[in-house]
Design a protein around this nucleic acid. Structure first.
Lengths: 209, 209, 209, 209
DNA sequence: TATGAATGAGGTTTCATTCAT
DNA sequence: TATGAATGAAACCTCATTCAT
């Protein structure tokens, strides 16, 4: 490994170190209550260092969210392009959501908090645009699955864009609600099981007849 | 009307004046971004006056949410106690949600932001307890509807508490998601129509067969 | 005196209290080295209070400068409109400068520091525009005095705008230089005497023949 | 050329590289707004390297100013020692100033900003002393020209030290003022022409009769 | 000698809350 | 009860300077 290469990897490591710390603090405290100083503490770095890698607090936060949203969009697009029945695609869609949740629950919750919360109201246009576009990509892939199912005569013939919204709402609603229940009641994590039930109900509800 | 009574009514009016203003500002700005000064401005009062009626910013915010949550809980309990089929109860449940949304969309959104957001992480135990209890009341009423439907053999025989969570998740998920789409894309409000679709799918999904 | 009136006067006093403190600190430390906290200390107020009366540090600083520049512009315009010979006008012009300097040496120095220094490079367009306009007013009044003198055949027939620049330069140059000498050598203030000499030389230099 | 010598020259080159960059950045941004990082960027070096050649930011900045001030002092002393009439000396003095300005307008402006600005208030005693001494050398040379003129009966018999101040003030005042006009109005550079006018007026004003 | 990532002190600014009137 | 000016703690962010490589 050359010096350049090692330096690049080290730089990547430092970025990750910050991102991990930010993920932890944002997830447990929320955007506004989290402080740069605390993130720096967790990352075992000084506050100033964070500003070498990220322009400001907002950019650091949004980076986390857009990153996972991009990942979701890509996975959902893959599912939509698969050569299987729309019925199976719906199952695969559910599994994408579950997998994403299991891989990184906190950052996913963070994304939905961003999407549902007040931070949204205070983003720069540039960042907001990225969020919109990536979000639109994911939604349009879901819509295409629904449309295919309708055309194949297996799904009810309703407004497919609205149905995609329902899918997405169900997903994010379950994650946020079950997470908040966990916080409120110190219960264990039952997002996965609730998601399974929610999707099986939604799937049955989408079916014709 | 005696002097005491008039004073009480005036006091109530002043409180409402503040609550209305707080509702408006919290809903449009979010908890952290909203300032006491702006709420006072909207209420046409001085900042100091707000502290005569509410202990602090948090109490003012949570009061709004708990208030509507109590209302929802009561309405849902009424629906559950009604002497109709569980099938019809599910429709009535949907209408409760729609009515609440239509009566005061902003405060409902505010409740869900509270439930999904970072404020939750910074509440006093006392306030948190109230939130938990009221929330539990609503959920348990929904659960009872599901249980009844299962016992009557019309609903699928799954974990009824989880099904209640799914109902609640769907409701809150749709409201938050559609609201955020409205904000992001400056679209008009289509919460009601999406809610109707979401509930018809959920209902069909819940049915046995 | 009514309550309203007293309050207004008190508010004005508080503003002045801040302006006086700012003048003192900016003049002795310069813009960048001066801190809001020190100004607040001198004003015997808390830092936050300064932000009730002025939007930010820049506005506070520029307010001082624009204010005196406006005063200069007005006085110079009066001198220019007077019904006396251009020869006498030149003397009156000198006296305006001397009077302004004697009334408030620090704030005048502050203006020239603003005009000559780096702060200029970091002003908002809005504030810069005000500065330009007021500055232009003063210069154009000086120019009109020169033009009149040229037309009357008493002043040399050179580019009058440049001559106005020379007058202004002489004025600000003397003030800044003598002030800096005072700082460097802990000498007493000899701006007035130097100004008198500078103007008598300039006046003689401007005369025809 | 021996190794030692080459090293010395390389060291000198590196120093110049830094000084050139510093000159450019300080002149366009001002002392406080200029950052070490930007100077390092322009010099195509790393920030750390600058600290090998200069103790700190202040020393770097003041080195530039003292350097040109020394140059001015030397040139003015030469003019004063010349074997020509005081009348011609005054012309030569003007030409020194013009030549210095034309050779390096930015660094001259930088010197006057130092002299007129807030940096002056924050220099170390050591550096301040150097500035004082060099400045005194230049002023005393100018004074000697005036004295000679007075003794020869061609200049008015006023306080010669003050007259030297007036000369210097005129010079620095014109440079700063015209530079600031250029900045404010995006006009072209008319320092030279204004300087010529200013000196011709001053010269005429200094003449007896 | 040269690097440049990291530091951390210190600055500006915000805003929930208080309290004299 | 109502006011609203004042507070001051705490947040974000910058950047001169250092030091391990």
């Amino acid at each position: 490994m050359g010096i350049q290469e090692r330096k690049t990897r080290e730089k990547g490591l430092r970025r990750n170190q910050i991102l991990e710390a930010a993920k932890e603090v944002f997830s447990s405290k929320g955007y506004n209550t989290a402080t740069i100083e605390e993130i720096a503490d967790v990352a075992e770095l000084s506050p100033g260092t964070l500003y070498i890698y990220f322009k400001n607090k907002e950019e650091l936060h949004t980076f986390l969210s857009i990153d996972i949203l991009k990942h979701i969009a890509e996975e959902v697009e893959l599912v939509a392009q698969d050569n299987v029945s729309s019925d199976v695609k719906l199952d695969n869609l559910r599994d994408v959501f579950i997998k994403v949740y299991e891989k990184d629950p906190m950052i996913l919750i963070s994304l939905f908090h961003l999407q549902a919360g007040e931070t949204l109201r205070n983003l720069s246009t540039e960042v907001l645009d990225q969020l919109k576009q990536t979000s639109a990509r994911a939604l349009s892939a879901i819509t295409s699955i629904i449309v295919e199912g309708i055309e194949a005569g297996v799904f009810i013939d309703d407004h497919p864009v609205a149905l995609a919204d329902v899918i997405w709402s169900t997903f994010s609603g379950v994650v946020l609600w079950v997470d908040s229940k966990r916080l409120l009641n110190d219960q264990k994590d039952f997002v996965k099981s609730t998601l399974k039930i929610a999707f099986s109900i939604a799937k049955k509800g989408l079916k014709k007849d």
